[in-house]
Simulated assay, not measured.
Amino acid sequence: MSKSIKGFCLHGREKILPNSGITVTSNTSVVAMQIPELKEGEILARTLYTGICGSDNSAALGKPNFDWVERPRIIGHEFSAEVLELGPGDHGDVKVGDVFTPLAMLGCQDEDCPACSVAKWNLCPSKQIIGFHRNGGFGQQVILESDRVVPLMEGLTREQGALVEPLSVIVNALHNKCNIKPGQDVVVTGCGIIGLMSAELARAAGARVAVTGIEHDVNIRLKKA
């Protein structure tokens, strides 16, 4: 039997501009949503903390480069959650009560797929992104494949679990690609959340870090940086 919960839903595509008279919530609403029976390999989880990504904002503001996002859709892909129930099939080490952060992207996993065969799910043409192709972390509960479950390391809080996904992007860019060494100079262009986290990671690697921004950032974001 399905059950009803609530979720924050993206449903419209209207382009929202400053001073246009259109409210910023016109493309979104809180809706009742049904949780269906679990299929093979799926889990049901209770969402704990969910971050708001810039892409969530862009989709909600109707920016044309996010027209591809399926609607209606419960958005949110940066979150922590707790496993409530296991569906049929083998779930490996995943068990009820586990607290985790999900893999935002999951490819087709076909052994013949050039991307999935080398674990590059983000390059799979058939990838499914949580919150864009399927319901995500702004629902009270969410259904996911157990393949997406990444248990939180000991010592990480549930709040910090919602930051793992954006931080992983930064780690890939700075740690895996840039090979920053102590004593180097690093300039981070932009002082939003990703920029500030990049600055923290570069500093932790031993670099001398400068953060830049635009005039609009001077009194708030750059002052924080």
Rank of each mutant, 00 (worst) to 15 (best):
Pro64Gly: 00
Pro64Ile: 06
Phe66Glu: 08
Phe66Asp: 04
Asp67Cys: 05
Asp67Pro: 05
Trp68His: 14
Glu70Val: 11
Pro72Ser: 11
Pro72Gln: 11
Ile74Asn: 03
Glu78Asp: 14
Phe79Met: 10
Ser80Arg: 12
Ala81Lys: 14
Ala81Met: 13
Leu84Gln: 13
Gly87Cys: 07
Pro88Ala: 15
Asp90Leu: 02
His91Val: 04
Gly92Thr: 02
Val94Asp: 15
Lys95Tyr: 01
Asp98Met: 13
Asp98Leu: 04
Pro102Trp: 02
Pro102Ser: 00
Leu103Asp: 07
Leu103Tyr: 02
Met105Pro: 00
Met105Gly: 03
Cys113Phe: 03
Ala115Ile: 02
Cys116Gln: 07
Cys116Ala: 11
Ser117Gly: 06
Ser117Pro: 01
Lys120Ser: 04
Trp121Cys: 13
Trp121Thr: 06
Asn122Val: 09
Leu123Ala: 10
Cys124Gly: 06
Cys124His: 04
Pro125Gly: 10
Lys127Tyr: 12
Gln128Ala: 10
Gly131Lys: 13
Phe132Asn: 11
His133Arg: 13
Gln141Ala: 05
Gln141Leu: 00
Ile143Thr: 04
Ile143Trp: 03
Asp147Trp: 11
Asp147Met: 09
Val149Asp: 11
Pro151Lys: 09
Leu152Ala: 06
Gly155Pro: 00
Leu156Val: 06
Leu156Lys: 00
Glu159Lys: 13
Glu159Val: 14
